[in-house]
Design a binder for these strands. Structure first.
Length: 568
RNA sequence: GCCACUUUAGCUCAGUAGGUAGAGCACUUCCUUGGUAAGGAAGAGGUCGGCGGUUCGAUUCCGCUAGGUGGCUCCA
């Protein structure tokens, strides 16, 4: 029985064969199975569009129906090179294979390809193939290389399974934060000001509620909150190293012949505060938190809803400490992050990555390796599994990344902790404290964020909850629905009673009938709908509807308040 | 930034073989005062993303440009 990976990978081969049969001068690269299907990269003069999918799919279907065997063969380098004659990408890939390693080919019908495998035994085992989209992709993932044309496809046992996969994708699109953000009136993005979020009242309510939630956690964990300027001078960015390493991403402005930049990061501000007076080792670790608004001039093609923007606020903090304190501080942070993510139900679908020294970096290699080891040790200390991403660290230090997945399965880095020996050093911002020995020393700095950016995290939350936010986070927690205008007075008195308890509550005073009001409140995912009419007013009750539960019947207002307070 | 696609009312989308546009929802007004998922009627709303070209005439064809979408690269 063929595995789904084998079927997807084999489907990729037949896609390559079909594209070569349908079009002229096709160069093939590689085509692996992915977590939800497969892709294949091509280079050909014809620009492939979705309109071409029909004839490519028809050819794939024909090839599957031939039910030919996939035949594996181990060949010599020379034999393989001869087979790949004219296929420049494949030949380049061949030269990657180390001497002494087996080189295998898979042949199906008249089509042979260098491939590690494994594959299905016969093409009929693949099932049904549907091509989904076409996109550009740099050869070997390097932007200096030529851009190839990548075709994405999915595989199903039959058409019904294909339809189900497409239906699931449609369902996922309904959770898309860009759609829900508009539908629920949370925010909007202005085409004239790309990558900048306009938060509407309801979205901003979520934003501040989340911020207040984090503030409580920070106080408990020994942080102090600060705030530093949005605009800082070129001279500071030169000393920090950002001018050399990050300038292309900075918004730069000028006043009276002096150059300033809108801050892309909060770290220099935190060190300016540290440096504002003489510090003792007794002050360490110093944990300075800042909900700092940053602006980064991200490339236009990378912007995505509120997940990737040009103006955002991080739940940032900088921990200034001694080298001995690093491990405990990283572990302490990891515990905080696990605690927070658990509150949102993210403890399971969380991926932790340790990113190591990139090519563009400051500082010497031995310092880097030591820092990387500290992060790994801290992970182990709080029992967190991680994968290593070689060369993916920030230019100033290695980092742990905490990645969450959006509705369409795309990963987004949210939380992070980055170790930094450079910024506090004499060559950079020259932070110093007096040690027990009476001498000056440079501290180490940890950059860290639990949520990452409020914008991105809220984007993830919108999709995670499909817009149905938990009670404590809901912008409108309760909506009062008077059955008619005659109940408006009572509705407002109920509203006042609930608002006095600190709940976010509104009255639907429209001229609609009750059914329409209920429908609207349901579509807008308000957690509690409170129906009030003359019958309730007469005996001082309210009729309660809970999201997902329906009609809970009548209860006294005090009873309702008690119930709601338990939910906070 | 790169490759492809795309842009019509506030939103979701029709449409025009090139002769300046339409639906549903939302919005406004009026009628309806209705007890658990859409009461009824009328009205308003668009230089068809922007600039240029072809044409008697462009929302429609072509070019450029901006935004968006899907990826790639990069990143919180």
């Amino acid at each position: 029985m063929a595995t789904i990976e084998e079927r997807r990978h084999s489907a990729a081969h037949l896609t390559a064969r079909a594209v070569q049969n349908v079009f002229e001068d096709v160069q093939v690269d590689i085509g692996p199975a992915t977590s939800d299907g497969f892709y294949y990269d091509f280079d050909l003069p014809h620009r492939i569009t979705p309109e071409d999918f029909g004839k490519i799919e028809a050819e794939i279907k024909r090839l599957i129906a031939l039910d030919e065997p996939f035949v594996r063969k181990v060949v010599t380098r020379e034999e393989c090179a001869k087979m790949l004659e004219g296929q420049t990408y494949k030949l380049d890939r061949l030269s990657d294979i180390p001497e002494g390693e087996d080189i295998s080919t898979y042949t199906v019908g008249d089509y042979a390809e260098m491939c590690r495998g494994p594959h299905v035994a016969h093409s009929s085992e693949i099932g049904v193939v549907k091509l989904m989209r076409v996109a550009g992709s740099y050869y070997r993932g390097d932007e200096h290389n030529k851009m190839l044309q990548r075709i994405y496809g999915i595989v199903g046992t039959d058409q019904a399974e294909i339809d189900a996969i497409i239906a699931r994708e449609e369902e996922a699109k309904r959770r898309d934060h860009r759609r829900l953000g508009v539908e629920l009136d949370l925010f909007h993005l202005d085409p004239e000001d790309p990558g900048q979020v306009f938060w509407h009242p309801k979205g901003w309510s979520i934003y501040v509620t989340l911020q207040e939630y984090m503030r409580k956690k920070l106080v408990k964990d020994g942080y102090q909150e600060v705030n530093t300027p949005a605009l800082m001078p070129r001279s500071l960015w030169e000393r920090s190293g950002h001018w050399d390493h990050y300038k292309q991403n900075m918004f730069i402005t000028e006043s009276e012949k002096r150059i300033f930049a809108v801050k892309p990061m909060n770290c220099p501000g935190a060190l300016e505060i540290f440096n504002s007076r003489m510090r003792s080792y007794k002050d360490l670790p110093l944990r300075l938190a800042e909900f700092g608004h940053c602006a980064r001039n991200e490339p236009s093609g990378t912007l995505h809803g509120i997940m990737r923007v040009r103006g955002f606020v991080q739940d940032d903090a900088h921990i200034i400490c001694t080298e001995e304190q690093i491990e405990e501080e990283v572990a302490k942070f990891c515990r905080l992050l696990k605690d927070v993510y658990k509150d949102f139900g993210f403890d399971k679908n969380l991926v932790v990555k340790l990113s190591t020294m990139p090519e563009d970096h400051v500082g010497d290699e031995s310092t880097w390796r030591h820092a990387e080891a500290s992060l790994a040790a801290a992970c182990k200390a709080c029992e967190m599994d991680y994968e290593i991403q070689p060369g993916e660290g920030a230019f100033y230090g290695p980092k742990l990344e905490f990645t969450l997945i959006d509705a369409l399965g795309r990963p987004w880095q949210c939380g992070t902790i980055q170790l930094d020996y450079q910024l506090p050093s004499a060559e950079r911002l020259n932070a110093e404290y007096i040690g027990p020995d009476g001498q000056k020393h440079h501290p180490v700095m940890l950059h860290r964020a639990v949520l990452g950016s409020l914008e991105r995290f809220i984007g993830i939350l919108i999709e995670h909850y499909a817009g149905a936010f938990p009670f404590w986070l809901s912008p409108e927690q309760i909506r009062i629905l008077p059955v008619s205008d005659k109940a408006l007075g009572y509705a407002h008195s109920v509203r006042d009673a609930l608002a006095a308890e600190g709940f976010r509550v509104e009255v639907d005073s429209s001229a609609e009938k009750l059914g329409a009001k209920i429908r609207l409140a349901t579509v807008e995912k308000v957690p509690y709908q409170i129906v009030v009419g003359p019958r309730d007013e007469a005996v001082g009750t309210v009729s309660v509807r809970a999201r997902g539960e329906g009609d809970l019947g009548a209860m006294k207002i005090e009873e309702l308040i008690g119930k709601l307070k338990k939910e906070i």
